[in-house]
Design a protein around this nucleic acid. Structure first.
Lengths: 277, 277
DNA sequence: GGCAGCGATACCCGGCCGGTATGGATACCG
DNA sequence: CGGTATCCATACCGGCCGGGTATCGCTGCC
């Protein structure tokens, strides 16, 4: 199986339409049809079900779509890492969620900068999905938060473990409580909703949010309530309160990197990061 | 980057000889030279240093070799899994070390067989490197032992944690001790040596072993001593003794599977496995 | 200095990838 | 119910590129 075939198949599987897929790939439709047919023939497996009006995936096609995406990401990452090594890139790229982990991040960068063999660290601030740049090679290392970020396929070291707090306007009915339980907040009509892994949102009446900036804006406007790691309580904006949620799942901040990394700088950074936990 | 190019590069990087690599690939040497040159040109990166007598890898080449191996494994795995799905393979393939984990394995298979939606489980018994068939798609799930098997890039659940025992002939000088420390055994001249990840053996005078069958034969012949998980003490052969090594690292038996697996049968098996821990 | 080993270069051929034109099936609509 | 738009498959053609053979150039080594 060539990556070209995988690129073609993934495009068709995502578009479920040969014409649009061909356009996206920058080729004409007939060669694409032929390429997919050849791939199916060589695998001896039907990947797509074509009616003349609709294209859908077989079970095998679903599997190959998932595997293919992962492989294409790995190939892109391999190219980037190879080029970065050749260019003797004198910097580490660290991915982190914008607005989150500020304290840990600052301490980490400070501590690492004091290392004898420290190299410049470039920050890649993500809105969410902080693990993605790690998988496709745009970043060398990332700060992730379990259980919210997926860490499958990565090497990780735990940095901090913390409880969670409910953040809301001081005027909120619950704002005078000293502690809360999940049951108190889980049914609130204004509880913010985060997207699931597949990008869809769970049911509910709360605002749909995609990142922390957005979320805090809504909270300050009194339009949302959210349960967040307790580190956010430091430096909370005027008029907001943070109330411990005693039975919320613990949030683990981890430093993560792709397996079989061989960079000295990365090893140093991880050592420093785990050192001051 | 096409997988063809990666196959070619990995072959050359492993052989460090264009002629042999070409032979291994089943093509002539000149097209191989050209393909590698094109790959380097497209990447804009030197991967190999050729003197007319010797080929060696650049740093970038080392990186691409590691990444390339992983990618080729993933591609092979993707093909196998796609075909397996299409064939509606009614079985799970479970990889385990031959001779190890016998008890856990039996309990697991029994418990799973009692599930309502159980499918036949095929066993793939490995001499070692039990994780390899998982990465290249020959197995769906494996029993691994940390810290001895690498689990990077896999999803795992812990099944059992146990101490280790030293196994030796009853006639061995240490055989009458009731407990041992690592210091007692680590310098024994007949301590069996396991291969490292790269296949080479550490220095020492003990026998070089590759699997448990081999090892037990040597121990029964009085030619070796080994430190093994305590589960081996049950059902030990006549004339052998197992003595707890109190400060040996704990061995964790885990059930591992490739990330983003979507099989119902696998999910059931994992649930059953973690259920009776 | 001759030789053997090894990678690079030169050149040719055939297959395959990609293009255009067109056919066939189906849903939709007046 | 016929016309039409949509969409995938087929047919056919041309150019590129991957693979082959022959050969050269370089470098240790006997």
């Amino acid at each position: 199986m060539e990556t070209r075939e995988l690129r073609y198949f993934v495009a068709v599987a995502e578009e479920l339409n040969f014409g649009r897929a061909a356009e996206r790939l920058g080729i004409a439709q007939p060669p694409l049809s032929r390429a997919i047919a050849q791939l199916e023939h060589r695998l001896g497996v039907a990947l797509l079900i074509r009616t003349s009006r609709k294209v859908s995936l077989t079970d095998a096609g679903e599997v190959l779509l998932a595997e293919g995406r992962a492989i294409l990401g790995a190939v892109a990452a391999a190219e980037r890492r190879t080029r970065a090594t050749a260019a003797d890139r004198p910097s580490l790229v660290l991915a982190a969620k914008a607005g989150s982990s500020g304290e840990v991040l600052a301490k980490l960068l400070d501590a690492y900068a004091g290392e004898p063999a420290a190299v410049p660290v470039e920050l890649l601030l993500c809105e969410s999905n902080t693990h993605v740049p790690l998988l496709d090679g745009r970043a060398d290392v990332a700060l992730l938060h379990e259980p919210y970020d997926p860490t499958t396929g990565l090497d990780v070291e735990v940095l901090t473990i913390e409880g969670q707090v409910a953040v809301m306007q001081a005027a909120h009915p619950l704002a005078d409580r000293s502690r809360l339980r999940m049951a108190d907040v889980s049914d609130l009509p204004d509880l913010a909703r985060w997207p699931r892994r597949d990008g869809t949102y769970p049911d509910g009446s709360g605002a749909e949010v995609r990142n922390l900036t957005q979320l805090f804006q809504l909270i300050e406007l009194g339009r949302a309530v959210a349960v967040l790691p307790e580190v956010v309580s430091t430096g909370l904006a005027e008029g907001l309160v943070a109330i411990p949620v005693v039975d919320a799942p613990q949030v683990t901040t981890v430093i993560a990197w792709p397996p079989h990394s061989r960079s000295r700088a990365l090893a140093d950074l991880v050592r420093v990061a785990t050192g001051f936990s």
